[in-house]
């Protein structure tokens, strides 16, 4: 009788280190760490990164603002009007203890409006990003897996899309279709699809030629099964990274659209709309109505990118 030869499975204490470093090794070394352990490990590594801590702290602040809205703002973002001692509206008050971010052209509290404005952007941007990534995954998967003329045709379409100025097309679409949250979500998602598709395509190309795909075809699996059951779990890393990056871009794009007037109508405390209202009086030295909403946009974009960055570097390392 031949012996078992290789019967042991190592416990969770086994790590990858040594085998990766055995550079000239002739054959793959035995057993690497448990997958769940590895996932927990990467999560632990992500949480330890300063960029992740800072990024998620900022994002959580905005999420709290978005959820609680009026309940935590110092004043009502729409109805409140600041008054001076004589009871007249206090317009364009510069930042002070009572109004840390000052007041705007109609005497509303800028701080309250910035806080409340988080809701609009956090409602739309992640949805747009998720939808865009979903569409991109489907298109990219088809391009990468089927290859050939399908890939050729879709690639040209993707390139054509990439050549279009995103904001211009979005404005056109919103003007044509009318403004609603769903239209903004849809338009931004469609505009993101080609970029995501390209990322997914290249990840799928690397997987397509692996033998497990050949093996699936040998037992007669359908293309759909191979694409979404066999390959998809193995390209989830780049897709997660892409999703976080896209959320950042979506915040930016949605804010830009509001700035250009394609956002929610005036009384709304939308950040982009606030910047656009405020910047007209910038020349008169009234900087606070522009700076604070702009900072809000920047902080959210940067925070999301910090998270994306740490997710990417941990996934790359493992």
């Amino acid at each position: 009788m031949s012996d078992l030869g290789t019967s042991a499975v190592t416990g969770p204490e086994a790590e990858t280190g040594g085998f990766e470093t055995e550079i000239g090794g002739s054959a793959p070394g035995p057993v690497i760490s448990e997958r769940k352990q590895a996932r927990r490990e990467s999560w632990r590594l992500i949480r330890r990164r300063p960029s992740f801590i800072i990024g998620s702290a900022i994002v959580s602040i905005w999420v709290v603002c978005a959820i609680l809205g009026n309940r935590i703002t110092p004043h009502h973002p729409l109805d409140f009007r600041a008054k001076d001692s004589s009871g007249l509206p206090a317009l364009h008050l510069s930042p002070r203890a009572a109004f840390p971010f000052g007041t705007d052209a109609t005497g509303r509290d800028v701080l309250s409006r910035v806080m409340a404005g988080a809701r609009d952007v956090l409602k739309i941007a992640p949805m747009a990003a998720i939808l865009g990534v979903l569409l991109g995954v489907i298109v990219g998967m088809i391009m990468g897996y089927l290859g050939g003329w399908v890939d050729l045709v879709l690639s040209r379409i993707v390139e054509a899309f990439l050549a279009l100025p995103v904001v211009l097309i979005a404005l056109l679409a919103i003007t044509t279709l009318g403004r609603s949250d769903w239209v903004v979500v849809g338009v931004v998602a469609v505009l993101f699809t080609p970029v995501v598709a390209r990322t997914v395509r290249s990840a799928v190309l690397a997987e397509r030629d692996l033998d497990y795909v050949t093996s699936a075809r040998l037992r007669g699996e359908t293309g759909r099964f191979v694409m979404f059951r066999e390959i998809l779990p193995n390209v989830s890393g780049p897709i997660i990274v892409e999703l976080t990056v896209r959320i950042g871009y979506a915040v930016f794009t949605v804010a830009t659209l509001s700035f250009l007037g394609a956002g929610p109508p005036p009384p709304s405390p939308d950040w982009g709309a606030q910047v656009s209202e405020g910047f007209r009086v910038l020349g008169a030295g009234i900087w606070w109505t522009t700076l604070f909403p702009a900072l809000a946009i920047a902080s959210l974009v940067i925070a999301v990118n910090l998270i994306a960055d740490s997710v990417q570097s941990v996934l790359d390392a493992s």
Partner: peptide, 14 residues
């Protein structure tokens, strides 16, 4: 004959 084998596996590094 069957080939001889070495039972067990290489110990892990470390």
């Amino acid at each position: 004959r069957a080939l001889a084998t070495i039972p067990g596996t290489l110990p892990l590094i470390g």
